[in-house]
Design a protein around this nucleic acid. Structure first.
Length: 885
DNA sequence: TCTATCACG
DNA sequence: ACGTACGTGATAGAG
């Protein structure tokens, strides 16, 4: 009978799993505080491969330690590897435990890597004849072991996706036979394992040489046949290195492995041990797979509290200085959600209620509105809006746990008190998902004791973390950022959200019915041109029509099929009239579904307004985002879409919509923080910055000589610089050649040397500190800056360049908004600030205040901060948002 | 729930 | 050689 042997590269799969779940690292912890992400991911992978392969025998191989015969051969082997994070290394003992509980053998061998154990056992099995071998790893190097009896499955990034390698697949993908992989690696070396091959030889050259000569040995035997003088020279110079690299890359097939194939029978799950293991790890989904109901192993320590009622509210008067408060709602959208309860207290005195009506009563309402009693909350903006709906004012918020957590680290953020509390080391709390469930199963029962317990634990967590999180903030030098900007802007935003902006449904409906007609017309034309009816909105069906039926050239693919995105279709438009019609159809149906139907759905019936929510703790740069509806992406670039703005109107007769925007704020920030004299001069002299850049990089005498085309190119370079330039990106985005893009960037850096120096310095800063900062000390961590993966590292480098610029611009407009609210109030104006769109503020203004705000608004914006270059503000107004241009 | 597409700065 | 421009959100289709 044929056996099927599954060989697993334990370390490699554990690493993959760990990094795949790296963003959720803090979500995967058990009640003992152990990180469990790699264990979890490892087990998912086991489930998947066991199910698919149904092996009769299994062995999981592990690396025994750092020193191996390879490090003895070459001391720097893997010498560039960063130390394994403790969050991962602490998981290894448990992964071994898991392997055992799942009925599998494991093995490690001093002086050898897991690869060598796998290579040796695979060979033994192949020699025996009655074996089929499957190897599971995350390391492509193991594909050298593929044969007609052995397949190698490589886990792809992030998921349980596997790529199956047979000898044919290796040849197709790498262009060489499995046995020749080591020759390729011998020639080009391996950066991630830190050994060199032959100088100037990369994938392309290595493949060509091996295809021609078959092996490294053969190259040197026939060295005179190698074409290219330089190449030959390099090959001869690095002959020893190449031979050593090949040896290092070669997986041992005769390691002194002490286990016998006969001992590897797969025994299947040991139910008792496995259940116990899953419970200790807190793996509920795996438990339920075993058919075991998850027991509530991690019962929380009780917090005693008093249930509040009308009769005992007066007990709250004891809180004179400080109180922690949590308002519970049944949905994210706090403009419309129901308030279902609240908790309040301090120290060890706690109260909770499920009657929202109590909020309005004294002394509770009085405490919340008291300017001398400090409040600690989670999400001040949400709490303020919720209370406002109950006609209760919220004053003197000292600590907003959500905001502080976001400022400390923008990455692992969550809107859930339990998640954030655990992140900061407070474990005696559950998440909303654990208590209420999620998705369709989410259910809050305000009458239950679990509900009361949960909201009390939330308020208690806020109370408990108050001081230590503030101390962290201080260590980061971010106290000013929090007190002067973030907590203040929370309330400004709350009032903007509450004010809302009026949207005229009739205008939208009228446009909608026109769009509907045009869509029907275009659709008919498309059907005729296609010769059949299909769903134009389906990229899959459209791809079939364009590329399979009509045989248009395939310019780009996505991972699921043909790309039909705008840039592709624009290139195809001259080939067939159907393409332009598809583009038109797309544009109009986007407007229809997102902006006409979408907006109509969210207009509040009572006031004919839309009330967006600004997410203050989401973006990695400090910008806001806007949801439900998103009012930061209302169309403007196409005239057709821009008309949507006609529906946005003032909420009173004889008022105007007013818009003021910062001109070139990001480039001004760049000029200021880089200190570049030439760029600063351009802004001080109020020049057209794109024209000046064109004049400089193209070496013209004056800005008058700049043609529109040159200006357009210079503008693209200016943008590219802000995004963290690369020649590849610039070329791709502007249609010029990569070589030319490279020249442009070089010229740019010659003309703006301060910018060049800054870009180098900021990447260096990120490498040294692990983060970058804005002018207001907003911080973004960039762990990938050290990554060995080129893509990840390059991305981190671009982010290091971009974030201080985008983030400082975000700081500036936030400061302006805070000052704006004060300025409008001080001048007793009825003018209201309604929206923020990153570098632009939208107001509604009574006609008789127009003259006053013409002075106040721009002045408040351009004086928000003092940069080394002036800030410039442009303003427009009209009877609708459309007309404010 | 994920992917592709497209709206904005 | 590597192969992406920075930051977002909403929708429809497909699985």
């Amino acid at each position: 009978m044929t056996k099927k042997l599954l060989l697993i590269d334990g370390n490699s799969i554990a690493f993959k799993a760990f990094y795949a779940l790296y963003n959720s690292l803090e979500r995967f912890t058990n009640s003992a505080g152990l990180h469990t992400s790699a264990i979890y991911g490892f087990n998912r992978m086991l489930d998947k491969v066991l199910e698919e392969e149904k092996p009769t025998d299994v062995l999981v191989a592990f690396d025994a330690g750092k020193t191996t015969f390879r490090t003895k051969m070459f001391a720097d082997y893997k010498g560039n590897r960063a130390k394994t994070p403790t969050e991962l290394s602490e998981q290894f003992p448990f992964i071994r435990e898991l392997v055992k509980a799942r009925g599998m053998s494991s093995y490690e061998l001093p002086n050898y890597e897991a690869d060598d154990i796998i290579g040796t056992l695979a060979r033994e099995a192949e020699d025996k004849g009655n074996y089929q071998v499957v190897i599971l790893t995350g390391d492509r190097d193991l594909t050298q072991l593929t044969s007609d009896k052995t397949t190698v499955q490589i886990s792809k990034k992030g998921t349980t996706d596997l790529e199956k390698y047979t000898p044919e697949h290796v040849e197709e993908k790498l262009g060489v036979k499995p046995a020749q992989i080591i020759d390729i690696k011998g020639l080009k070396g391996d950066n991630s394992d830190n050994y060199p091959g032959v100088e100037k030889v990369g994938d392309k050259t290595a493949m060509k040489l091996i295809q021609q000569f078959g092996s490294i040995e053969n190259i040197y035997k026939n060295i005179d046949e190698v074409s290219g003088k330089k190449l030959k020279e390099h090959l001869l110079n690095d002959q020893q290195q190449a031979k050593r690299a090949k040896q290092l890359a070669t997986i041992k097939r005769d390691a002194p492995v002490k286990v016998s194939l006969d001992d590897l029978a797969y025994k299947g799950d040991n139910l008792d041990t496995l259940t116990d293991f899953y419970e200790r790890m807190g793996f509920k989904s795996f438990l339920s797979k075993l058919g075991v109901e998850a027991t509530d192993a991690d019962n929380l320590e009780k917090v005693s509290y008093t249930k509040l009622s009308h009769d005992n509210l007066s007990e709250l008067t004891k809180f004179k200085q400080e109180v922690s408060f949590y308002l519970e709602m049944d949905d994210d959208n706090y403009h419309t959600a129901n308030i279902v309860g609240f908790s309040i207290g301090h120290g060890d005195k706690w109260f909770a209620a499920n009657e929202p009506a109590l909020l309005r009563e004294k002394p509770l309402a009085a405490i919340l509105a008291d300017k001398t009693i400090q409040k600690n909350v989670f999400d001040a903006k949400r709490t303020y809006v919720g209370l406002h709906r109950e006609s209760v004012d919220l004053e003197n918020v000292d600590f907003d746990m959500l905001l502080v957590s976001y400022l400390l680290n923008t990455t692992n953020n969550s809107n859930d008190v339990g998640t954030v509390a655990k992140l900061h080391g407070f474990a005696n709390i559950k998440t909303d998902e654990e208590v209420y469930g999620k998705g369709a199963k989410k259910k809050i029962d305000p009458a239950s004791s679990t509900f009361f317990d949960h909201i009390v634990h939330k308020a208690k967590a806020i109370d408990a973390l108050h001081n230590e999180m503030f101390a962290e903030l201080d260590k980061h030098n971010q106290t000013r950022l929090y007190r002067d900007i973030e907590i203040k802007i929370a309330f400004v935003l709350a009032r903007m959200e509450i004010a809302g902006i009026k949207v005229n449904p009739a205008t939208l409906e009228e446009m909608g019915s026109k769009f509907k007609e045009r869509l029907a017309e275009i659709q008919q034309t498309i059907f005729q041109e296609a010769g059949e009816e299909f769903n134009v909105g389906s990229p899959k069906q459209l791809g079939h029509i364009l590329f399979e039926k009509m045989h248009l050239p395939i310019l780009k693919k996505t991972k699921t099929g043909y790309s039909t995105s705008v840039d592709v279709l624009e290139k195809l438009a001259p080939d067939a009239p159907i393409v332009q019609n598809v583009l038109d159809y797309r544009q109009i149906s986007k407007l229809q579904s997102t902006y006409i139907d979408g907006l109509l759905k969210v207009i509040h019936k009572d006031d004919s307004k839309v009330h967006t929510r600004y997410l203050q703790t989401l973006t990695q740069t400090g910008r806001l985002s806007s949801v439900d509806p998103n009012l930061q992406n209302i169309p403007i670039r196409s005239e057709e879409g821009r008309l949507i703005r006609q529906a946005f109107v003032p909420s009173h007769e004889n008022w105007q919509i007013w818009s003021s925007d910062y001109s070139q704020i990001e480039l001004r920030v760049l000029a200021s923080i880089t200190g570049d004299a030439n760029m600063q001069e351009a802004f001080r002299e109020n020049e057209d910055i794109h024209a000046t850049t064109a004049r400089r990089i193209f070496g013209l005498a004056s800005n008058d000589e700049v043609t529109p085309e040159l200006r357009r190119q210079a503008k693209a370079v200016n943008f590219g610089i802000v995004y963290g330039i690369s020649d590849y990106g610039l070329a791709n985005n502007t249609g010029i050649s990569r070589k030319q893009a490279h020249q442009f960037i070089q010229r740019y850096f010659e003309e703006y040397p301060g910018v060049k120096k800054y870009m180098e310095d900021i990447v260096e800063f990120a490498k040294n500190h692990g983060y970058v900062e804005t002018i207001a000390h907003r911080r973004r961590y960039l762990p990938d800056i050290h990554s060995r993966n080129f893509n990840l590292r390059s991305f981190a480098e671009r982010t290091a360049m971009n974030t201080p610029i985008q983030g400082s611009a975000a700081d500036i407009i936030k400061i302006a908004m805070i000052n704006m609210e004060t300025a409008l109030k001080e001048n007793s104006l009825k003018t209201r600030m309604l929206l923020q769109v990153h570098d632009e503020l939208i107001f509604e203004v009574p006609n008789d205040e127009l003259e006053t705000v013409k002075k106040i608004i721009p002045r408040t914006m351009d004086s928000a901060v003092k940069l080394n270059v002036p800030l410039k503000v442009e303003s427009h107004w009209g009877k609708t948002w459309y007309n404010a241009k």
